[in-house]
């Protein structure tokens, strides 16, 4: 059983072990959707929501799995849960904001295979968080993902006007930016601990 306070867990997942910039999880949506601030924020919100749902479901399912001693099904059960949560988000977004749905494109269904979310569910089980701790953890992880996405989108929007040399165009400069951001996030190491 873990005894950390929920606030500390939130802070830890949000800044110190930021899922994107410290653990390098969920890099493909991070690089794929961070072109524009306009898509970065809704994407972040979608990820936060899916994380919350996945966290609650994973917590419940884990209890069942442990009860029937079939923990080896954990991975596949979690993936099924995440996939259905993503379906829910996808249908909602498609119904209420078709424009946003088109902007997010392939990256919305790809949340299903977002390793950040599966990672969050597996970490919370491995750390033996209770229900409240799990919620704080998933909220922190989602918020951290959103923070990284928004910072990155702001920088990339500014770089649209920059005179980037040909060799560094596109993915190269995005990777370098991600590296610099990650370097800056190293400053949070050990915070609160």
């Amino acid at each position: 059983m873990s005894v950390e306070s929920p606030a500390l867990i939130f802070l830890n997942a949000f800044l110190i072990n930021n899922f994107v910039l410290a653990l390098f999880l969920g890099l493909c949506p991070f690089l794929g959707v961070s072109n524009k601030l306009k898509t970065a924020l809704p994407m972040g919100a979608a990820v936060i929501f899916v994380m919350l749902v996945a966290s609650v479901c994973a917590y419940g399912i884990n209890l069942l799995l442990v009860r029937f001693q079939i923990e080896y099904l954990r991975l596949i059960a979690y993936i099924a849960v995440i996939a259905s949560a993503v379906q829910l988000v996808e249908m909602t977004v498609k119904k209420f904001s078709p424009a946003l749905f088109r902007m997010l494109g392939i990256f919305l269904p790809l949340i299903t295979t977002n390793c950040a979310i599966l990672g969050m569910a597996l970490f919370q089980t491995a750390n033996e968080y209770n229900f409240v701790q799990s919620l704080a953890f998933s909220l922190g992880a989602g918020a951290g993902f959103t923070l990284a996405l928004v910072l990155m989108a702001g920088l990339r929007e500014r770089l649209d006007l920059a005179d980037v040399p040909d060799v560094c165009m596109g993915a190269a400069i995005a990777m370098m930016l991600a590296g610099l951001l990650s370097l800056a996030f190293m400053g949070f190491a050990g915070l609160g601990g």
């Binding site: 770089l159 920059a162 005179d163 980037v164 040399p165 560094c168 190269a172 400069i173 930016l177 800056a184």
Partner: peptide, 11 residues
């Protein structure tokens, strides 16, 4: 330099 030189550096 990779960002385009003076005026474009992000940090």
């Amino acid at each position: 330099s990779f960002f385009g030189g003076l005026g474009f550096n992000v940090m």
